[in-house]
Structures are given as C-alpha cells and as structure tokens.
Simulated assay, not measured.
Amino acid sequence: MSSTLSTSVSPRAALVTGGSRGIGAATALRLAQDGVDVAVTYVQDEAAARAVVAKIEAFGRRGVALRCDAADAGAAAGAVDRAADALGRLDVLVNNAGIGVLGPISTLAGPEVDRVLAVNVRAVFLACRAAAERMADGGRIVSVGTALSRYAGGPGGTLYALSKSALAGLTKPLARELGPRGITVNLVQPGPVDTDLNPADGPFAEGQRAATALGRFGTVDEVASLVAYLASPDAAFITGTEVVVDGGHAA
C-alpha cells in the first residue's frame, strides 16, 4: 500500500487473533506497515508471538502479544477487551484464529467436534460481540474463512468446512447491524496457501495446486494484503461480502 494510506490509518489499533504465525502473522505485520498498532493472540508459542511483536515495533508501531485459547469462551471475548485496553482503542478486529481437524465424519469424536466449533465459530461470534461494544465508529471487522466453504474439497474436510461456513452467516447480518455506525464486516475466503499447516511442498499439495487456475499456492502476504485493504479507509463502502483469494480455484 502507498505511504499516503499508511499515514491515513495511523494511529488506529487492531487485534489479530491467531497472529503468531501464518496468515495471522503476515496480516499483523502488513497492518503495522500501514501504520496500525497491533495486538496478536497466541495459544502456546509465546516466542513466535513475541517475534511478531518485535517486527511490529520495528515498523514504529505498538505491538502486544496476548495469550488466548479461543476454545475458552471467556478468553475469546476477553482478548478484545485486553487488546483495546493495552492499545487504548480498537478500530480493527481480524478473526483469523482457527483449527482444522480432518477425517471421515465417522471418525470425528465429540471433543474434536466441540473444540473445532468452539474455536472457529463461537469464539468469532463472541469476539465480534465484544468488538461491537469497544470499537470506534468506522471500524473494521474481517474474518478469515476458507474457500472450502464455497466448493467441495477433498474427503475429510466436512467438519472444517462446516465450521468456516458459519462465518458467512455471521458476516452478512452483522454488517447490517453495525452499518449505521460505519463499521464494515467482511469475510476473506483463502484457497490453498503455503503455511506450516499446509505447505506447498506437502503430501497433499499437488492436487490443490492443480485445481487452481494459476497452478500454484498463494502466499500469506497475498492474503494479508487483501485483509489489510478491507481494514483500510479505502474499503469503507465494502461490507457484508465474501472476497475469495484462491488463485482461481472456483473459476
């Protein structure tokens, strides 16, 4: 983004859940580069989260690392308040934290189902509810889903796709509810992206790569640039929509 935009967003404050690695870390750094103070949540890898904060601060922005297990309903909502208190305000919420448990539906045990739905659905809802109370007018809510909720993926993705599909149902009515305050709510649907959890050279990569029109995996920075745009003042007239960044998988 241009230096003009970077100046225009400063000194806003953002919370990126699951911001210690992958798309979340890339998004946190892109927002910091654009002049936003950023809090990130992590579950176990505090060192990775601290490393992201150090990079945020290298851009001259304030960074905060918050431990938060999104499966805990109280922690999920509390992270929003903690971020707003630490940074002095909250203008952007990026719901990025998520987990995927893959396997045939007959093999998925109750605790696995409960945790996936708690992290991927309930925590997002509770974070949005808390943000609606703390966020300034003109704020931004961006959730990160998956393009698997828009087309049939491979066998074993039923629970993950189910949980991420719920985000579309949350995004549209919430955009209507918060619209009078100028708060936009959008959903980003990534296709195959090269991350530690789904590496471009992994055992399941070739089929995903071949299914895209571009014949490659996306990068975390490519997804982060879209999230950052939707979080920016330039995207003030975009709300209640799903934006697919999948390399033409659904083309």
Rank of each mutant, 00 (worst) to 15 (best):
I56G: 04
R50C: 04
R61E: 02
A127P: 05
L126C: 11
P180V: 13
G169E: 14
V40Q: 07
F237C: 11
A152V: 15
I99N: 01
L126K: 14
M1V: 14
V80L: 12
G215T: 06
T4V: 13
A70Q: 14
N198Y: 14
S149W: 12
A152W: 12
A51M: 04
V94I: 03
G22L: 08
R12P: 00
A70N: 08
C68N: 04
I183V: 15
A152I: 15
V193K: 05
R89M: 05
L174Q: 07
A228L: 02
V92I: 06
G207M: 05
A79F: 03
L162D: 08
V124I: 14
R115E: 07
V142I: 02
A130R: 14
A168I: 12
R50S: 07
T171G: 05
D34M: 12
D34Y: 09
A25E: 12
R181D: 01
P155F: 14
E133P: 04
N120C: 03
G179M: 12
L162F: 11
V119C: 01
D81T: 15
A130N: 05
T212N: 12
A25L: 11
A250M: 15
V185D: 11
G103P: 06
A84F: 12
V119N: 01
A65Y: 03
A210K: 15
E206K: 11
V16W: 02
P111W: 08
A251E: 05
C128S: 13
